[in-house]
Design a protein around this nucleic acid. Sequence first.
DNA 1: ACTTATCCGAGCATTTTAGTCAAGTATTAT
DNA 2: ATAATACTTGACTAAAATGCTCGGATAAGT
Lengths: 165, 165
Amino acid sequence: MRLTTKGRYAVTAMLDLALHYQEGPTTLADISQRQGISLSYLEQLFAKLRKQGLVDSTRGPGGGYKLSRSPHEIPVANVITAVDEKVETTRCGGLSNCQDDQQCLTHELWAELSCQIYQFLCGISLGALVEREGIQQVAARQERLQKKSQHVGIDPVKCEIASVS
Amino acid sequence: MRLTTKGRYAVTAMLDLALHYQEGPTTLADISQRQGISLSYLEQLFAKLRKQGLVDSTRGPGGGYKLSRSPHEIPVANVITAVDEKVETTRCGGLSNCQDDQQCLTHELWAELSCQIYQFLCGISLGALVEREGIQQVAARQERLQKKSQHVGIDPVKCEIASVS
DNA sequence: ACTTATCCGAGCATTTTAGTCAAGTATTAT
DNA sequence: ATAATACTTGACTAAAATGCTCGGATAAGT
């Protein structure tokens, strides 16, 4: 399968968007700060997400991105396939030409695995994730850190470490 | 997850071994020929598979590798984890230190996905795969190609192409 | 105008992949 | 014995992918 940091970052960013779904457009700068993803990298990811119609963008001050539809209507699978090419574990990409233009010995197995993964990721929407307690806790922590660093103007990470120790 | 060609090759090779389980040791040269995997690369993979106790080796003429136990007792998951480091989709490898030593927003999701994949791959043994019709067909074709190229001494691929057209 | 934000494309350092190559060491059929 | 066969080890590498950075363009709100 194609499941790299790219896909993980995309889902993380989209989940951040889902968490702030009620609050109008969210800027990439905010997401970058909260999730620790480089701004430029986010721009690349969102270019793809926009092309796939998963998010709408508003330019100018007060602008940003928002989900194109309810978080409950966006399965995680869609996000991943939007940025990664495929959710496929076969080498041939499902074309069955893995060995000398013929199907390789393990083609069937990978095809089934791909299907499994896809089904799983289809069954989980951003909305469902937002409602989870564990995720809300992480989100709350990220929010706190962000506010802190905005007020004091220092690195949020060090700030947290200092407050813990 | 860590699911690359390495893992795929390992499973393919082990499945080849399972198909010839009754016939005494199988040489890597044979597997290399049948499955189209570089011999040196197979050596690397089998070094790991042997360390994990999945295969036994016999040296000298007539030697080779064989499965250390019945194909039915070897789940695909074991083969993959033997050569790839982990069957994990989280970035942190399950340690929950993905973002600034804290759990990242999507940690839960990837942990669950990893679990799903692992369960799936645990549920399928080499023995179960060998019994499948589709796989037996592919195996039969590979066997034919190998015999042909041994007799005539030419490239099995071209041979097949020629006989098809 | 000026700031804030998204868009767009090129480029690039690092890492991973998927091997190869070379030089062994061990075993056994003859 | 010894040649043949097979496994073992380790270094190396070309090519691809990853995860960015940088510079600038465009659009919109104030």
